[in-house]
């Protein structure tokens, strides 16, 4: 029997560019052409000024650890507890939920404001997730 898999996102017309980006190894954000606001999650207008003139761009993939929990129970399907559920503050401003890899899942190792960089984890031929690891150097 197959192991229970982690919840898999299903893109919509408004988010497809983001998931195409992760498949191509890019973290893609959107910037408003009118007011320069950078925002997430994806939508085809600026949530700050309502302009529909927005552009997709490749983000740096760098950020820092804003906050997290280390989940013990109940564990989500496809996860082995304890595992951290983190919110990463990207250098461009927006925050996103993710997991921290290549790092012990302990309060001692997971220091708030530690520098992180994006890493891509392929789930299948259609979906690659943006995860984060401690930044090198």
């Amino acid at each position: 029997m197959a192991e229970p898999a982690r919840a898999k996102p299903k893109p919509t017309p408004e988010t497809q560019h983001f998931w195409d980006g992760t498949q191509a190894g890019e973290l893609r954000l959107q910037r408003c052409d009118a007011c320069a606001n950078v925002y997430f999650p994806p939508r085809p207008f600026c949530p700050s000024c309502a302009s529909r003139k927005v552009s997709v761009f490749k983000a740096s993939g760098k950020g820092k650890l804003y906050s997290y929990v280390i989940n013990h129970r109940p564990a989500a399907p496809g996860f082995t507890p304890p595992y951290a559920i983190a919110v990463v503050e990207l250098d461009e401003g927006p925050r996103m939920m993710s997991n921290i890899i290549d790092c012990p899942q302990t309060p001692e190792a997971l220091e708030l404001d530690m520098k992180l960089e994006v890493a891509f984890e392929k789930l299948d031929d259609k979906i690659t997730l943006p995860l984060f690891r401690p930044a090198k150097g």
């Binding site: 982690r6 996103m96 789930l123």
Partner: peptide
């Protein structure tokens, strides 16, 4: 899975 929560939170183990 096509809601915003389903795309941008659920895959990271919230339960």
């Amino acid at each position: 899975p096509d809601s915003l929560n389903g795309q941008f939170e659920a895959p990271f183990g919230v339960y």
